Computed example of a mutant assay.
Amino acid sequence: MTARARSLAVLLILAAGATGVIASTQTWLIVTIEDGARDPLPVSGAAALPVLAPLSLTTLALGAALAIAGTVLRYAFGALTIVIAATLGVATGVVALTAPVAAVVSAVTEATGIAGLEAVDDLVTGISTTPWPLITLAACVVLLAAGVLILATAHRWPGSGRKYRTSAQVAPDGAPSRRTDAIDSWDELSRGQDPTV
């Protein structure tokens, strides 16, 4: 059960991070501008929510590191996962539920050359949302659940494998075994032995 909890937490974090990265490239908002000759302007997730891509990439890295983290780092990563989920969740919720003009200012400025929140607000006649903000919000909920799962079960997770340990190992006869270094590993390879076994 504990190994399954770790695998599930890592999988949920990676899935949420990947969803965030994908969502940052998709159209979140469609803006109608007062100039009737102009087509509706699509606004990507990265433009509507600039922190989405960086925090999603951080989430992916966190999920990968969690797979080999020790007990103390598991709790730190669990808390960080909850903070990222809450931050992204609140910001995404604002965009998804209210479609504020502030989320489209950069895209409108790039398309029209008109800058400033008030000037863009006067120019915009309507903003509609696509499903992507809600999909991202659901990913934030999944990420939050993963963080809670980590904090609840991290103390029971099995330790990392032998290749991640840095302390001296004890040989089967009870004597501490000598740590090998890079030169020892090369020597073993030269003799046709596998140093990772």
Rank of each mutant, 00 (worst) to 15 (best):
S7K: 07
A182Q: 08
L14Y: 02
S44G: 09
A15H: 07
T32W: 05
A67F: 00
L55C: 11
I30Y: 04
I13N: 07
R156A: 15
K163S: 14
A91E: 04
G126P: 06
V31R: 00
L60I: 15
L57V: 14
A138E: 07
A15Y: 05
M1I: 04
S190H: 03
T130H: 00
G89W: 04
A103G: 13
L52T: 01
A23E: 10
G45H: 04
R162P: 14
D194R: 07
R165W: 11
D184F: 02
Q26N: 11
A86P: 05
P133S: 14
G36E: 10
P176S: 12
V83C: 07
G20C: 06
T130D: 02
G147C: 12
L151G: 09
A67T: 05
A91P: 01
A48Q: 01
A138P: 04
A103Y: 00
A79L: 15
G45D: 02
G161F: 02
L117K: 04
V170K: 01
A146Q: 06
D173G: 08
P176K: 06
H155R: 14
V90Y: 08
V141M: 09
A111Y: 04
V83H: 06
V108N: 09
V83E: 08
A107C: 11
V10F: 02
A23L: 11
Y75F: 15
A46H: 02
R162D: 14
S185Y: 05
A152S: 10
T58Q: 09
G78P: 14
R38Y: 03
G17L: 08
A99K: 08
A65G: 15
L62E: 09
Q26E: 10
T92N: 05
A86V: 15
T153K: 09
V148H: 09
A53G: 09
T87Y: 02
L144M: 14
P131V: 03
T59M: 13
T109N: 04
E110C: 09
L80G: 15
A65Y: 07
V83M: 12
P100G: 03
T71W: 01
G93H: 06
C140V: 06
P158K: 12
R74Y: 09
G20R: 01
A61K: 01
A69F: 02
L12E: 10
R178M: 13
G70E: 12
V21T: 12
R74M: 13
S177N: 12
I22G: 06
T166P: 08
A5W: 03
S167V: 06
A175W: 04
W28S: 14
L149T: 07
L60P: 12
A3G: 04
I150Q: 05
I30M: 12
G93D: 08
Q169T: 12
L123D: 00
V94A: 10
G159L: 11
A171V: 11
